[in-house]
Design a protein around this nucleic acid. Sequence first.
DNA 1: AATGTTACTTGCTTATTGCAAGTAACTTAA
DNA 2: TTAAGTTACTTGCAATAAGCAAGTAACATT
Lengths: 127, 127
Amino acid sequence: MNTEPTNYRSLCPLSTALDLIGDKWSLILVRDMCMHKSKYGDFQNSQEAIPTNILANRLRKLESNGIIKKRPYQEKPIRYEYFLTLKGAELLPVIQQLARWAHQHIPESMPPPDWFLNAKPEDLIKS
Amino acid sequence: MNTEPTNYRSLCPLSTALDLIGDKWSLILVRDMCMHKSKYGDFQNSQEAIPTNILANRLRKLESNGIIKKRPYQEKPIRYEYFLTLKGAELLPVIQQLARWAHQHIPESMPPPDWFLNAKPEDLIKS
DNA sequence: AATGTTACTTGCTTATTGCAAGTAACTTAA
DNA sequence: TTAAGTTACTTGCAATAAGCAAGTAACATT
């Protein structure tokens, strides 16, 4: 399944970015991988409670768009762990800004932890 | 129409942010307002070709969430212009990062203009 | 042998998106 | 002065996507 858009809505960089990750769940999964969650069950157990069919679909899409990679961690039965590519890790500044914004402007939201605000994309790859 | 979520999926700042603006169109409209587009027709004329019912719906949601405000620019018939609040203007760092990311990682996307990358939220309000 | 765990898929319902057309209140051109 | 155009929408409906519940395959554990 290749899910890269064959034609983007426009070539505006913001618009192309949103064509890839502009939905309610993709960045939640990127966040989880920033926190070194890597297995299907880890993602399911996050507070936001992603439906399992959506989770499977998003993992496929993110992989097909080069944002994550999967690698087998056992053979019988075959099971994969998922982790960020460089392309995926470099979404960290985006989600840091989103978290900062939410903390400043959405009263209900919790403060982002310091380790998260201080993290760098290169901390996330090949860990 | 109040569209603020009564219960967010979680209180994680990223998650609450995505509950408000995590869709394909909201940030496109914020981008347009950063470019000083202000009228309904201006938004319709953007390259991404937002459907008119979605546009009306998103303007309502963004206003109800305090990200934009509207102000009448004529009385007969009543017509409004839309502009960013401080809360909306402070989404600029988010869309700057998204644009930067897209330019670096999506080959098809165009480079973001320098004025855009160098803009500051305070440049956008009360203009 | 039965129960549990992990990582999914399938079927179905509900919600959202998007297209096309319609409408209201004007403005402009013939 | 009438017809066509503009602006800012709303409504109806079809297509797509999301979400819930249940099922399944391949093991491990009790």
